[in-house]
Design a protein around this nucleic acid. Structure first.
Length: 1132
RNA sequence: AGUCCUGUAGCUCAGUUGGUUAGAGCGCUACACUGAUAAUGUAGAGGUCCGCAGUUCAAAUCUGCGCAGGACUACCA
């Protein structure tokens, strides 16, 4: 422990942070903290890799602070917490950035720029801002091993990923399938959902929409639609049609099914075709009738024939009627005639009505035209029902040759080269054709939001493409079950957003037709009969060797590489990216060449593999899996729920049947102070570096954590940081400085046993402190840093600074060395030391400085304090709370009556109704009297006094028993007069007649308080009432004057620049005011002692000042009394 | 469109199993204090607890339907 405690002139948090940071780096405090716990049980933490091709923002300060908090806390709790940094290096954003920089487009790759050069540029670009990131990480105090990060483009990392893919492959969890993906025919490439979410891709466009009529095949399934009806020309003659709407008529030739909602209601309707004016019978959803038929044209079925004959067949006031209602599931299984029979699906069933939950009745007819080739929902539902597909559009976006007169036409006019588009789009032509066929019910322009390719600006198609998938659906139950064991903060994200996502799980589309990413390690023969999945470099080498031997490859490109050598130098000899991986041609068991499947894998698989790949598992650290997996804790933005949180979970479940993390904190966004999202465009983004420079990391972190729970969005307002600085840090700083100041003067014994000397307030503040330790421990353990931060802050500001120090300050500087003084110093020292430890996770710099100043060592090497249940005294805490309330009440009366606190008053009275209260008041009596400057406290027994009493029903207790009668009972109780209150108090029970029922009110059901004390000034707060005797006598007035005088002298001491410990010569000139002079005479000793005056008691009042040259001060003590005095530093 | 989060004083946020007159800090106003002083105390002004309906003796709290802001996912006939 230091002999001398450092004192500071001013609080400069950025400076503290910089100095402490230098100290950490000089001493390698982070390394020491790991070394200290090297044999301790591990607490596994995963750092989610950021992409270093963008600059960090203020939200990263938030995210990284949260991670740091729990890692530091667990270290203090005695765990070994490794924190390996990581970089996410692959993916589309990087490719886009590079293309922009090089001024090229995707089409140039392989033409004007080689894949090799392109990937080299990506590799370079991706680590561009690592220095900035590392700097920010350091500056905010996030302890992370930046020296040995995992990097997803490194060969070792990729090898681990390949191992995982092979594992999935071997378990039949990896397969090639056919899905509908957004596709840009103009650009000739599939688009990721990320690309689809670029700003401006969704545009409002007007397309031709059509309601087509599908003719039902009459059979056992559909017979009910043909039952005779009151309308005479029965449907049997002209058939029954199902109506289905589409905004993309070009998909109608590819229709193979109609989907209805099984639970939706449908109706049979008879009306006229608006184009052919033929009478027709049709089926659509009941709630959609109004979209197509006007209520005023409705005809009762029985009256149909006459009205129908009257119809002018001009498309105006078209009459209609209906007669059957049925559910969608009754329609399932019905077959219909193909609408536009250009081609037939080669497999599966077709032209059947099926059920799908996704069908809505918000627009259209409640029947979905289903072309599985061109819609994701369509494909999914078609698969479930074994419906075949028809893909009558090619990859350029043109109709295929089967399409007869339409063959070769682009399905969207936008795809034609400029100026060559025909006047009528195929949508229009097809609609005309349907009208002519009598199979169109309604054709109109329809405005909707449709995605466009962000590069070519042309509409995208949904198109079936071959992709590799992870069969996550096979493990859906495990994914769900394991998720239930994860501690989600907040819980709702886990059960809600994430849980629902798992419930609706789809297979994971792993394929990306890109260049910069991890290649899929699958090689296939051209006939697709043979394939191999590679799971390690060793295996790859062996296969290459076979290939070379078979003459398929000329030489082994990785000849120098030794699979047994785990050195980085060895691994640097291998690059598995494209085009190198593509250049490898393997040989199949039957001797055929095998080419690599051209796809890369989704970058999300990269980051989801990090628990294993960061340690090059299983090629290295094979037996250490238990020590690095699963994580105890991870944290990222809530936007990662279906990103990293999901991929970690999916890979760990599929490969290891385990969770990847036991607890996850999903943090919210950092918005600007108006609640707007920060963006460069709006210019409201906060620069993290400027913020750190200005306020220091501690204040920024404390503000962020104490202001809102991590998962709530934070409205970032710099004024909030100032407030945190002002309130919390300054209170702590002042308290420490106060301690240091007097500790240095007095050198108290901080080791002595003072347990017997601890005062009531010592024990109180220690009790509060131990309660706080317990609370902070629980909440940090449970990932609730906000609750912990607020509690710590409240303790420091209210309990420690505003109460304990204020009340006890004179113990630190008055009187002799001894047990009492030591007790005070030890208590304060302990509080400051513990606060440093509790706040260390959140404010790592200031707490470290403070802890080092107090103890000489780093707080981050300390053990988390254990709370001592013995020291927690709730009765004492309640008693003190009572004292605080009482004090506040008395001060409020003084204020009301105009008596300043320095004027002593004779007595205060508190009526009590029970023994506990009585005992408490006795215990706090002295404390309160000193605090409010009153001579005596009279505790009055409310039962014996003439106090007016007030009665209030306790709604909670009484309500539970009274139920419906509560209102009346409460009214009756409130109406009690003094006699009735007395009776209830005496008997403990009272019978009442309420609404004809007899009810019993018990003493415990009500709260009885003494309300007023006649003739005295009174204040009350809830059940607590206090009365103050405000009459003054000469003695009180004199004492008040003496105190005023002391106060003036103290001010003068300070103003004239005297040190706290300087002694003075003090003289006061007689002013002829009898009361004043009497006051000085009677209280001379007190005045001299308080002001550290060396003057003799009898010399204090003088007619003339002894030192002719000394400055004379005129001071006013109140409105009437003024005096002159002189004070100089004493030679003694 | 779906899922989830948020909505309480001018601002930032508490508010327990439903219980009387909904709280704190900041800010504002007034006064006090002046050896903790960029602090502190007391008092005051400031509320449609987002809205509507329901359950209940009793709703900020529970339920339903909406509204607004936000996030993610999807993009649909």
């Amino acid at each position: 422990m230091p002999k001398h405690f450092k004192q500071y002139d001013e609080l400069d948090l950025p400076k503290v942070a910089n100095e402490v940071l230098e100290q950490w780096e000089a001493e390698d405090t982070f390394g020491q903290s790991l070394e200290l716990r090297k044999n301790a049980p591990p607490f596994v933490f995963y750092e989610g890799p950021p992409s270093a091709n963008g600059l960090p923002g203020i939200h990263h300060v938030m995210a990284r602070a949260i991670k740091d908090i729990f890692c530091r806390f667990q270290t203090q709790k005695g765990k070994l917490v490794h924190r390996k940094a990581g970089w996410d290096t692959h993916g589309l954003p990087i490719e886009l950035g590079v293309e922009k920089e090089l001024g090229i487009t995707k089409e140039d790759i392989g033409k004007t720029i080689s894949i090799e050069d392109y990937n080299a540029a990506c590799k370079k670009a991706v680590m561009r801002y690592t220095d900035v990131w590392n700097d920010m990480t350091r500056r905010i105090g996030f302890w992370l091993d930046l020296e040995h990060p995992y990097v997803t483009y490194q060969t070792k990392y990729i090898e681990s990923v390949w191992h995982l893919l092979k594992k999935l492959y071997d378990d039949q969890l990896l397969y090639k399938g056919y899905t509908i993906q957004p596709y840009s025919p103009a650009a000739g490439t599939g688009l990721s959902s990320h690309e689809l979410n670029q700003p401006g891709t969704y545009k409002n466009v007007k397309d031709t929409s059509a309601v087509a009529m599908f003719k039902v095949v009459r059979d056992a399934n559909s017979e009910f639609l043909f039952t005779p009806s009151p309308w005479q020309k029965g449907p049997g003659n002209e058939g029954v049609f199902i109506l289905a709407w589409t905004t993309t008529p070009w998909t109608l030739p590819s229709n193979t099914a109609l989907t209805v909602g099984p639970k939706l209601e449908y109706v049979r309707i008879k009306s006229f075709n608006p184009y052919t004016h033929e009478a027709q019978t049709m089926v659509l959803a009941k709630t959609r009738i109004s979209a197509y038929f006007s209520e005023k044209n409705f005809i009762d079925p029985a009256a149909w024939e006459a009205s129908a004959d009257a119809y002018a067949k001009d498309g105006k006031h078209t009459p209609w009627t209906m007669d059957q209602e049925f559910f969608g599931h009754q329609l399932e299984g019905i077959h219909y005639e193909q609408l536009l029979p250009y081609a037939q699906p080669d497999q599966g069933e077709a032209f059947k009505v099926i059920g799908g939950d996704f069908v809505t009745t918000e627009d259209g007819t409640g029947v979905v035209h289903t072309a599985p080739s061109f819609g994701a929902d369509d494909m999914r539902v078609a698969r479930q029902h074994n419906i075949g597909t028809l893909t009558l559009v090619d990859l350029q976006g043109r109709f295929t040759k089967e399409m007869g007169e339409f063959a070769g036409k682009y399905v969207k006019n936008e795809y034609y080269p400029v100026g060559t588009a025909p006047e009528k789009s195929v949508d229009v032509e097809l609609s005309i054709k349907l009208k002519e066929m009598g199979r169109a019910f309604k054709v109109e322009k329809y405005e909707h939001n449709y995605p466009h390719c962000w590069r070519t600006d042309k509409p995208i198609l949904y198109y079936p493409l071959d992709s590799w998938f992870v069969r996550t659906t096979a493990k859906k139950d495990r994914l769900i079950a394991l998720n239930k064991t994860i501690n989600w903060k907040p819980e709702s994200t886990g059960t809600g957003r994430f849980g629902n996502w798992l419930e609706n799980l789809q297979d994971w589309n792993l394929s990306r037709s890109r260049y910069w990413g991890i290649p899929l390690p699958i090689w296939r023969t051209a006939d697709r009969d043979e394939e191999i999945c590679i799971g390690s470099l060793k295996q790859l080498k062996e296969e290459i060797t076979r290939s070379v031997k078979a003459g398929v490859m000329n030489a082994d490109p990785y000849a120098d590489f030794d699979p047994a050598d785990m050195s980085d130098a060895n691994y640097d000899k291998v690059d598995l990216h494209r085009p190198y991986a593509d250049n490898i041609v393997l040989v199949s068991p039957s001797g055929k060449p095998m080419m690599r499947e051209a796809d890369l894998i989704d970058v999300w698989f990269d980051s989801g593999s990090m628990p294993y790949a960061q340690h090059h598992y299983p090629f290295e650290n094979k037996d250490a899996l238990n020590e690095m997996f699963p994580a105890e804790f991870i944290a990222e933005g809530v936007d990662q729920t279906r990103g990293w949180f999901y991929t970690l979970h999916a890979i760990s479940t599929l490969c290891f049947d385990s969770v990847a993390y036991k607890a996850v904190v999903s943090n919210g966004l950092v918005l600007d102070k108006n609640g707007q999202k920060m963006s460069k465009r709006l210019g409201n983004a906060v620069d993290p570096f400027k913020t750190l420079d200005e306020y220091g990391a501690d204040a920024v972190r404390w503000y962020m954590i104490s202001n809102a729970s991590p998962w709530d969005n934070l409205k970032f307002d710099a004024e909030g940081i100032t407030e945190v600085q002002r309130k919390f840090f300054r209170a702590l700083f002042n308290t420490y400085n106060f301690f240091a100041l007097y500790a240095n003067i007095d050198s108290p014994d901080l080791k002595a046993d003072v347990s017997a000397a601890r005062t009531e307030s010592d024990r109180w503040v220690l009790s509060r402190l131990n309660s706080l330790i317990k609370l902070a421990d629980t909440n940090f353990t449970d990932y609730e840093p906000t609750i912990a931060a607020r509690a710590i802050q409240d303790f420091v500001v209210e309990d420690l600074s505003n109460w304990y120090v204020r009340l006890n300050r004179r113990r630190f500087w008055k009187g002799e060395q001894g047990a009492d003084k030591n007790a005070a110093f030890q208590t304060l020292h302990r509080c400051l030391e513990v606060i440093a430890m509790l706040s260390a996770p959140i404010a790592p710099f200031f707490s470290d400085r403070s802890y080092r100043d107090l103890t000489g060592s780093s707080v981050h090497l300390s053990d988390w304090p254990k709370h001592d249940e013995q020291l927690i005294d709730t009765e004492l805490e309640e008693r003190t709370a009572l004292a605080q309330k009482l004090t506040s009440l008395v001060l409020s009366i003084r204020k009301k009556e105009g008596h300043r606190v320095r004027q002593p008053l004779q007595k205060m009275m508190v009526p009590v109704t029970d023994a506990t209260m009585h005992k408490r008041l006795e215990a706090i009596q002295e404390l309160v009297l000193g605090e409010v400057n009153v001579k005596e406290l009279v505790i009055m027994d409310a039962n014996e006094s003439k106090l007016t009493k007030r009665i209030k029903p306790d709604f909670k207790k009484l309500g539970a028993r009274m139920g419906k009668l509560m209102k009346s009972v409460a009214a009756a109780v409130n109406a009690f007069d003094q006699a009735e209150i007395a009776e209830l108090e005496a008997k403990g029970t009272m019978k009442l007649n309420i609404e004809g029922q007899e009810v019993e009110v018990l003493r415990d059901d009500v709260e009885i308080t003494a309300e007023t004390i006649p003739g005295l000034s009174v204040a009350s707060d809830g059940p607590l009432t206090v009365a103050l005797d405000i009459t003054l006598n000469d003695a009180l007035v004199q004492e008040g004057l003496a105190r005023e005088l002391v106060s003036r002298i103290q001010t003068l001491r300070k103003e004239t620049g005297l040190e706290v410990t300087d002694r003075i010569d003090l003289h006061i000139r007689r002013n002829g005011d009898a009361r004043f002079e009497a006051a000085v005479r009677h209280h001379a000793k007190h005045i001299l002692a308080e002001t550290l005056a060396a003057t003799q008691v009898e010399q204090i009042l003088v007619d003339q000042f002894p030192n002719a040259g000394s400055t004379v001060y005129e001071v006013a003590l109140d409105d009437e009394v003024t005096c002159a005095l002189s004070l100089t530093r004493s030679a003694n």
